[in-house]
Amino acid sequence: METMGRYTLPVLALVVLAFVPMVVEASFTRHLFIIAFIYAIIASNWNLSLGHCGIFNFGHLTFFGVGSYTAAIAAKTYGVDPWVAILLGGPAAAVAAFLMAAPVARLKGIYVVLVTFAFGQLAMQLVLSQSDITGGAQGMVRIPYLRLGEYSFLKDYKLGYYYVALGLLVVSTIFIKLVIDSPFGKSLKAVRDSEEYAAARGVSVSRQRVMVLVLSAIFTGVAGGFYSIYLRVASPEVFGFGTLSLALSMVLIGGAGTIYGPIAAAIALTFATEALAGVRGLEEARFIVIAVAMILVLRLAPGGLLRLFEPLVPKALRQR
């Protein structure tokens, strides 16, 4: 009973999301869902390092960007099958995470913020400087799209992309849950809550940080790969302050350290920003609205909005 209760709500949410395309036929609304799923993967995986392990990682979008460009280059320049190209984003991002983790594992406090952040800038500068390969500031366009046999994913108002994105989100979420529930995941929490205690119990903090960063990069990179193949565009914008703060606000508003909070927040915020963009005069102001929301959540509900509803929500969503 207990286990059933724990999974009821997520499974219910999944069933609802699986039926959305039956009801929603507008291509644009489906597009928003797809973008929301991608952001949900980014935010929930970021939460693995930031929320669950307490690493001040501000380079998470780098993993997404590396995945995005890997898939774009593989599919367009080398003619790799787009399905494979998407998956290649995962290992590429994991390698990037490993490279970033090497200096970060030894640093403390604000220097972790600065270096992870600078690492993102490093990746962006590399993309900009290698314009022969990456298209530079213009980015890459007309990237090959997904096919399954003879079926083109450009058909049926993005129906195919919708289910691929949803599938990726489900697999990524199961992966995160497996990581958190494993003995390794439990040691993460110990380190976050008391580094000294964890060290005394023989947990190697450096190795753990490297592991978490690499694990959190895998699905973020795959999501990046999917993003390029889906939009058929790769742009250096993914490394910028804008994407960073949007994803960050999802983690914070949803609740750092929860599993489903960032996912719920990603879906809600994607639709909220899109709705705001529709209002004339608010095209730019929507980012201000999100920034203000982020500040208010930090001040008034530091555990994220989901926790505010904790007394109302059954145990299922409270899983941390």
Binding site: F56, F58, G109, I110, V113, F241, G242, L244, S245, L248, S249, L252, E284, A285, F287, I288, I290, A291, V292, M294, I295, L298, P302
Partner: peptide, 21 residues
């Protein structure tokens, strides 16, 4: 430390977008 990184990052977004408007 972490919270103020985030709030000042939010302040940066607010100032930049306000300036654009």
């Amino acid at each position: 430390l972490l919270i103020t990184v985030m709030t000042t990052l939010a302040a940066m977004i607010i100032l930049e977008k306000s300036a654009l408007i």
